[in-house]
Amino acid sequence: MSLILVADDDRDIRDLVVFKLSNAGHEVLAVDDGPSALAAVTERLPEVAILDVSMPGMSGFDVCASLRSEERTAGIPVLLLTAKAQEADVQTGFAAGADDYIVKPFSPRELLSRVEAVLARARR
């Protein structure tokens, strides 16, 4: 069982991700904005963070860059959940330090397999 952080301001997507990952046996910490995501990692260090790119106030790119800038959180694998599939946006995501990205609309099954792949890579 792994602790996974999910940050998305869309309640439906957040709940779907929580259900899917919980059913697969993971513990999920769900928040609805960037600052809450950063606050959550100060209390418990997740094994993977799934961040929505377009959150009000602080984007997923910003949260990802903040995680990377702190020694304690720099190693957390980050998956970006984004409606922006254009090359430049994907590049921005990788430049901010993301490990992978999932394009919305998304398939819950695909999301789970991507999370499992990122976890497996991190454990190697």
Binding site: D12, L16, K104, P105, F106, S107, P108, R109, E110
Partner: peptide
């Protein structure tokens, strides 16, 4: 309908 628009694959 709004949920369908957010999904892909079998669930959609």
């Amino acid at each position: 309908l709004s949920l369908t628009a957010k999904l892909r694959g079998e669930s959609r």
